[in-house]
Design a protein around this nucleic acid. Structure first.
Lengths: 174, 174
DNA sequence: CCGATTTCAGTAAGACTGATATTA
DNA sequence: CTAATATCAGTCATACTGAAATCG
């Protein structure tokens, strides 16, 4: 993962400035300007967080997406899950699961096994090396508070709650 | 932009479930679990919003990144800005600006001009076609409330405020 | 000569589409 | 036969790195 995170050090907030200009040009109207500012903030927050997390995970040869897949396997009862199930839980496309598991397998963190109860399915099973890597990576990520160290517990909970409404509307779950 | 947004329709919230399992496996500790849930929510929210916005913009041959660039030019006094300035404001890498302006130029929404006051610089100038497209696209986006229709104004403002703290810490501005 | 600006070539990860083989 | 599962080949937009040309 590239994404190296450059410090910009502007003397003003570019998103706030955009909101002000927006109001001048297109009027404020309903909530459109606030929605624009919020959306842009989410985009930038995503970029910042992904850069930080990927940088923390790079020593382990992981990206955040691959780390999430490993964690999911760690949580499963027998350390193995069918790929289709992984895609569901991680909310990613089937071909992305194949790709993620390919890379984890090449790194020796996961092995592929046929599903004994369904000849169509393939299981990804975490290896001992995979468990070690995920433990060490998790220590680093929690120490760094997942890049959200500036936020209070109440803010974290609020963020989760608000974005949860967004996810519900997008039909992630019911 | 691919990103077609598949409705998942799970019977539970995968992020919430991950948080519960996380607590079982690694203990709750400080704010680590809440941070993990918040980070994952931001990642998914980004994916959902980008899919929605790009789908809305596809009829205009735009992506959200290109739309943002056009809006920035619309806001500038003379409808033209130096590429380096655009990169600063949009918070993107210099080579990404070159790429974005390339595509907008191919679509006839922008033209390139040498900066008369600095021989090193290049200006991107929005065309009449560019202004028309950005007006129509903006109407569509505001009508769709930028994909954030479920959130109240207070929630939008709160989201902006909290993520602003995150951006400040990442040194986007001071 | 140094530094800023822009571009180019190339790499990488992710999210797709469309087609295919296998199996329930 | 239909549907689900996984994979493969290929595309696309983005975000970089490193090198080079141009100009202040």
């Amino acid at each position: 993962m590239p994404v190296t995170l450059r410090a910009l050090n502007l003397s003003f907030d570019p998103i706030e400035r955009a909101a002000l200009l927006w109001r001048e040009h297109w009027g404020d109207g309903d909530q459109a300007v606030d929605a624009m500012a919020a959306v842009t903030s989410i985009m930038r927050a995503h970029q910042i967080l992904l850069a930080e997390l990927d940088a923390l995970l790079r020593p382990y040869g992981l990206t955040f997406a691959r780390y999430e897949a490993l964690v999911l396997l760690t949580f499963s009862r027998e350390g193995r899950l069918q790929l289709s199930k992984m895609g569901e839980r991680l909310m990613v496309h089937p071909t992305s699961v194949t790709n993620t598991v390919d890379r984890l397998e090449s790194a020796g963190l996961v092995t592929r096994e046929p599903n004994p109860r369904d000849g169509r399915g393939t299981l990804a099973a975490i290896t001992e090396a995979g468990r070690e890597v995920v433990e060490r990576a998790t220590r680093d990520l929690t120490a760094a508070k997942f890049g959200l160290g500036t936020l209070t517990e109440a803010e974290l909970a609020g963020l989760f709650a608000v974005l949860r409404r967004l996810r519900i509307e997008a039909q992630d779950f019911s």
